[in-house]
């Protein structure tokens, strides 16, 4: 009788310990998940910022670079494609959607850098104060994109490795709705960084 009570009490203590231990693991996972979300919204913010710059930039370039309608059209349509992609909440755990999103944004980045490169041929444009201001804003925005992407990659790496480690994986998969997240790949990151060079 006495022994049984002791056994029950030890079991109870073990169960309570396990319970709180699992809760702490889940809570840490949730915090990391929130970090990933915050980093992701920062990525979206910076892309939005770039997207907002495009109309002004196109308008200024149009006034000077009359023979570059092809490059300008490419920028405009790339921007349209990038803004068309609806950002659903499950984007982070959907490889295809993530890839499409990335491709569209990379395309816009590439067309923009081509536009800046082309504008080097127009001295009047390069002397235009409006253009210089937009160019530095674009350069700053590209840099912010690179920073936001790097932060996002780090946040996802941290989350994913936490998510995959053995006891965490069992606990998180059974007791929480958190899931493994898609990350940007390194090659995309490498493509993304050096886009606008002020000096050239």
């Amino acid at each position: 009788m006495n022994k049984n009570i002791k056994l029950l009490m030890t079991l109870g203590v073990i169960v309570i310990c396990l319970f709180f231990w699992s809760i702490s693991i889940i809570n840490k996972g949730i915090r990391m998940d929130e970090n990933v979300n915050a980093a992701w919204s920062q990525v979206l913010n910076t892309y939005q910022r770039r997207s907002d710059l495009v109309p002004n930039l196109v308008a200024v370039v149009k006034g000077y670079a009359t023979h570059e309608s092809e490059t300008l059209d490419a920028v405009i349509s790339a921007r349209a494609r990038a803004t068309q992609i609806t950002i659903s909440p499950d984007l982070l755990s959907n490889p295809q959607a993530m890839k499409a999103f990335n491709n569209a944004q990379n395309e816009l980045g590439n067309t923009l850098s081509r536009l800046i490169a082309v504008s080097e041929n127009y001295p009047d444009l390069k002397a235009n104060e409006n253009f210089l201001s937009l160019q530095s804003q674009l350069e700053g925005t590209e840099n912010r994109i690179a920073v936001a992407r790097k932060d996002f990659i780090e946040a996802v790496q941290e989350f994913n490795s936490y998510f995959r480690i053995i006891p965490n994986r069992w606990i998180l998969k059974t007791f929480s709705d958190l899931s493994y997240k898609e990350n940007f790949t390194i090659t995309e990151q490498a493509q993304q960084v050096p886009i606008v060079d002020f000096e050239k």
């Binding site: 350069e139 700053g140 840099n143 690179a146 920073v147 002020f198």
Partner: peptide
């Protein structure tokens, strides 16, 4: 905190 704002030159 910093997020890459600013400008640079050579």
């Amino acid at each position: 905190k910093f997020g890459g704002g600013g400008a640079s030159g050579k």
